[in-house]
């Protein structure tokens, strides 16, 4: 396991998506009418896609190997 330095890739992925999810959701909530060019009608996409990413991020964190079992292997 030395070449991975005990880093489970699901942890950074989970953290990144959680963080981006929160950012998008909060931004969508604060600025529901965020400027869009020509087409998109619903500015709400920030909010609902933010939630999707947040859920995925948390899911990745949940399935990441817990630290204890990692140090054993």
């Amino acid at each position: 396991m030395s070449a991975t330095g005990d880093l489970d890739v699901r942890v950074p992925i989970g953290l990144l998506f959680t963080l981006l999810g929160v950012l998008l959701t909060v931004y969508g909530f604060l600025e529901p009418a965020a400027t869009t060019a020509a087409f998109t009608k619903g500015g709400q996409i920030n909010m609902w896609w933010g939630v999707v990413m947040l859920v995925f991020g948390i899911f990745m964190l949940l399935i990441a190997r817990p630290r204890a079992s990692r140090s054993v292997t």
Partner: peptide, 9 residues
């Protein structure tokens, strides 16, 4: 990307 996504997305 430029036309369909609002800031954020």
């Amino acid at each position: 990307l430029m036309h369909l996504f609002p800031n954020g997305m």
